[in-house]
């Protein structure tokens, strides 16, 4: 199956671009979600599988730089897009400022929602470097955490916002 052909013939192999690498998806049913393909076929378990209906945000990824729930994306429709998962945010073993801040603030309890939240917080702060409290709450309103009560998550986001603010000021 190729990216530009209007009607791709039945095929079980297609290619995705994930975290800057071309990945072959072989012997796959074409109805699979991007989440299923990332986790089960490409060995990228960072996006979590919970609700499978776009409700919990734990599978959040970027598709062409746009924050989406990967459970609601047809993988075979993402062939000409650049997919970035939580695994692709940092360089190698380094942590991004958001990841480090989640650690420092203790914003992690069971950890299941953390990858999705980290992706959503990157999306927020990259678009809006100085969000107010309500903007932060709205930005993570689609990422459910059943452990923390969100207090430390909000603290982690504020810490990154303030850090980035200090760095950008002369």
């Amino acid at each position: 199956m190729t990216g530009n052909h209007p009607l791709a013939a039945e095929s079980e192999t297609y290619e995705l671009s994930v975290n800057g690498r071309r990945e072959q998806v072989k012997a796959a049913w074409l109805g699979e979600s991007l989440l299923a393909v990332l986790r089960e076929r490409l060995g990228l378990p960072g996006a979590k599988n919970a609700c499978e209906q776009g409700e919990c945000g734990s599978c959040s990824v970027f598709v062409d730089g746009v924050l989406v729930c990967s459970c609601c994306v047809l993988a075979a429709d993402a062939v000409d897009a650049e997919v970035t998962t939580v695994e692709g945010l940092a360089d190698g073993d380094a942590l991004t400022d958001v990841q480090q801040s989640f650690l420092d603030a203790g914003a992690v309890q069971c950890g299941f929602c953390t990858p999705g939240l980290v992706v959503a917080v990157h999306d927020l702060l990259d678009r809006n470097p100085d969000p107010g409290d309500l903007e932060v709450r709205e930005a993570i309103s689609g990422n459910l955490c059943r452990c923390t009560g969100y207090g430390r998550i909000l603290a982690a986001v504020e810490a990154v916002r303030d850090q980035r603010g200090r760095r950008s000021r002369p």
């Binding site: 209007p6 009607l7 013939a9 039945e10 109805g31 609601c72 047809l74 429709d77 062939v79």
Partner: peptide
């Protein structure tokens, strides 16, 4: 199973003619 990825309306209508029972996919959230 087939997935058509048209770039123009003419291609999309052609794909739908070739697979009349196809489901139209927009944002995918439903």
């Amino acid at each position: 199973m087939t997935v058509a990825r048209p770039r123009t309306l003419a291609e999309a209508l052609g794909a739908l003619e070739a697979t009349p029972d196809a489901h139209l996919l927009a944002g995918g959230t439903d």
